[in-house]
Amino acid sequence: MVKEIEKAGIPIVQMANLIPVAKTVGSNKMVPTISIPYPLGDPDTPKEEQWKVRYHRVGVALDALTMDVKEQTVFNVSV
């Protein structure tokens, strides 16, 4: 899926928990998420905490779309 969209020349970033899977399928820009069933918000944490995680990681993903990278890159997240 990622490859087809990228092939069309549209910049794409994949947010995934299983970075090894994303790498294997040939994703070029990757941002880690926190888990498979809830990528962007752990239900055991308060809503505000979930929002913070989501806001941060989606922000990193958006910035990744503007980055000129030469190889498969995993962008770091801090929360």
Binding site: M15, A16, L18, A22, A61, L62
Partner: peptide, 10 residues
């Protein structure tokens, strides 16, 4: 005319 895509996988 979408300029970029965020793909979220599970």
């Amino acid at each position: 005319n979408v300029d970029g895509v965020i793909l979220i996988s599970t």
